[in-house]
């Protein structure tokens, strides 16, 4: 038991260390791509808390991503806030939104939950369009110059430097991954899995299953929201595209591909899928075809994803 825990911790830290050393050998283009992927991986990590551990399949997680994105970007654009306070504000707003939406949507289960989250997300998307005077709608807003650098603990941080952005993204990803790792391997993770595997049994043992699911929703939404905020702040752009169904589907796909209910799975899935789409979009305008084919094949043949399949066959210690 202890031995396997050590092994898995080593693996996780190893992956992060690998990402840490990567920029020294990578050309700029890939550095930028990987920065993007790492932010999306935080999104997927958050999504997986809800889907992989608590067993709740949301089709509307783009709403949380967008929530963080706008809650960080709008105060900067309209009120001249500084980057760190905007980021913290965005996290708080995402947590609140997730609690509110969770409290309502968790009254449903299964297919109804999927449709309800999809619809709520669609409402958020339409809202960003309707208030396009403030949000910039489809065209979006480019954040002003003062948001391209900030001071923290006496250090000046320059957000136009690709390297700085890379390490900020890595820092956020590491922090998120370690937090999730701790939670899913602790009591909370056990409660989530219990609800996923048999909710009525869990309730009859004395667990408040609604609260357990709500916790998953809030943590998941907050992580997704901070990913959105980080994305907006690092690349100085906010827009409605990030609230579309497309983003909700993408994050589901990342998670499915990498491995549902594993900590590293969503990270791996984000990398593979992002490069796959990147590859296809160079050759055809219909690159979403790849998304479709991947979804069908995964759900038919690898519903556990890459790491899920590995864990089942050879590596039972993988968390």
């Amino acid at each position: 038991m202890d031995n396997s825990r050590k092994r898995s911790l080593t693996l996780h830290i190893g992956v992060l260390a690998f990402l840490f050393l990567l920029p020294f050998v990578l050309p700029d283009y890939h550095q930028l791509t990987i920065t993007r992927i790492m932010i999306l991986a935080i999104f997927a990590l958050g999504y997986n808390v809800l889907f992989g551990y608590a067993g709740l399949l949301s089709l509307g997680h783009a709403m949380f991503f967008a929530c963080g994105l706008y809650a960080a970007g709008l105060p900067i654009y309209h009120l001249g806030w500084a980057v760190p306070s905007a980021f913290l504000f965005a996290i708080a707003v995402s947590a609140l939104a997730a609690a509110l939406i969770g409290a309502i949507a968790l009254r449903t289960q299964g297919v109804a939950f999927m449709i309800v989250t999809l619809m709520f997300s669609q409402v958020v998307y339409l809202t960003t369009l309707y208030f396009s005077d403030t949000t910039g709608g489809d065209e979006g807003l480019v954040l002003p110059g003062h948001a391209r650098s900030f001071e923290i603990l006496g250090m000046q941080v320059d957000l136009t430097s690709p390297q700085v952005r890379y390490y900020i993204a890595l820092g956020l990803l590491s922090a998120s991954a370690l937090i999730v790792y701790r939670w899913v391997n602790g009591g909370l993770g056990r409660e989530w899995v219990a609800v996923r595997e048999n909710e009525s049994r869990t309730r009859m043992l004395g667990y408040n299953t609604f609260l357990i699911k709500l916790k998953a929703m809030v943590i998941s939404g907050t992580l997704s929201g901070s990913a959105g905020a980080a994305y907006g702040l690092l690349f100085a752009y906010i827009g409605s595209t990030f609230a579309t169904i497309q983003y909700s589907i993408d994050v589901l796909l990342f998670t499915l591909l990498g491995g549902v209910g594993t900590v590293l799975g969503p990270i791996l899935g984000s990398f593979i899928m992002f490069y796959l789409i990147d590859f296809f979009s160079e050759h055809t305008t219909a690159y979403l075809l790849a998304t479709g084919v991947a979804l069908i094949l995964l759900i038919m043949y690898f519903p556990l994803g890459v790491l899920g399949t590995l864990r089942k066959k050879w590596l039972p210690w993988l968390p």
Partner: peptide, 23 residues
Amino acid sequence: PAWKRARLGIAYAFQITSIYPGL
């Protein structure tokens, strides 16, 4: 609600076995 009663110490074994099959 059921979960509060369970915390008071009322346990229930279902007629149709209810366990966590995947764990």
